[in-house]
Simulated scan of single mutants.
Amino acid sequence: MLDVVMEYARDVMDSPIVYLVIFAVAMGDAIIPMVPSDAVVVTAGVFAASGKPNILLVMVAALLGAIAGDHVSYWIGRAGGGRFARRKGGKTDRIRHLIEERGGLVLFVARYIPGGRTVTTLTMGALRYPQPKFTAFDCLASAVWAVQWALVGYFGGHAFEDDPVKALLLGFGIAAAVTVIAELVRRIRNHTKKTQHA
């Protein structure tokens, strides 16, 4: 059964459609956080180690999809977030201050927190974060993300050339570990802040 799945996966990876799939999944992940964009890019990277798909095109498709999805989410927030943007006091002011002071960093970190990318891009749009700055930071964050996960898969594919299943498991394990660590760091920081204010 596993051999059949791997053979099907190889057929998909040999097709030029794979780049469109990578683009669509990377874009969709910004709007529907359950879409597994990291896993798709890692998988494409694993297969790229054997020659197909092309690793550079995998990176480009992931990069462009991520940028497109983030901008759709940003504009949804901008179009529908007027009431949120007008709110004053409490959490809204803290969020506004954080995004004004560290918008680029927030955008980077949010990519590694489940659902964080969607919440952050919607919020930045709703708070009218300047679009040129958003685009500049987003292009940089998306490039780091796309190259990172494609190379995790690619080097895993080379390390386990005779056993691509192990390469996929390694790539998924690294992706999961990065996500869990980012979430733990976020929770620890939130707990520390609450303790300090108590």
Rank of each mutant, 00 (worst) to 15 (best):
T192G: 05
F160D: 03
S37N: 08
V58Y: 03
T135H: 07
I181W: 10
L127Q: 04
L151I: 09
T92K: 06
V58D: 06
E7T: 12
D70G: 15
R187T: 06
M59D: 07
D14M: 14
V41P: 00
Y19R: 07
L151Q: 12
L170P: 06
W145M: 05
V152F: 13
I17W: 14
Y154C: 04
D163F: 06
V42F: 00
V35A: 12
T43A: 15
A176G: 09
V178W: 02
L170M: 14
S15H: 12
M27F: 09
H97A: 13
D3H: 14
D29L: 01
A182S: 15
H197S: 13
H97M: 11
K91H: 04
I113P: 00
E101G: 04
R128D: 05
G80R: 05
P36A: 02
V41Q: 03
A66G: 13
F23T: 03
F160T: 10
E7Q: 15
A177T: 06
R128P: 01
P16Q: 08
Q148K: 09
G157V: 08
M6Y: 13
A141D: 00
W75D: 08
L98W: 05
G173M: 09
F172E: 04
L122N: 11
K91T: 06
G157Y: 09
G171L: 08
V42A: 03
E183K: 10
G90H: 00
A24P: 00
P164W: 09
Y8M: 04
L140N: 01
A62D: 09
V46N: 11
V4N: 08
T123V: 07
A175K: 07
D11L: 12
A167S: 09
G90S: 11
M59V: 15
L107R: 07
H97V: 10
D138E: 13
L56T: 11
G45W: 05
V5G: 08
M124C: 07
G77L: 13
V180P: 00
D70W: 08
H158Q: 15
K193F: 06
I95T: 08
T121N: 07
G89F: 03
A143P: 06
D29W: 00
A175S: 15
V185T: 10
G77R: 08
L122Y: 03
A182N: 13
T121D: 06
G103V: 02
G171T: 03
W75L: 15
R96N: 01
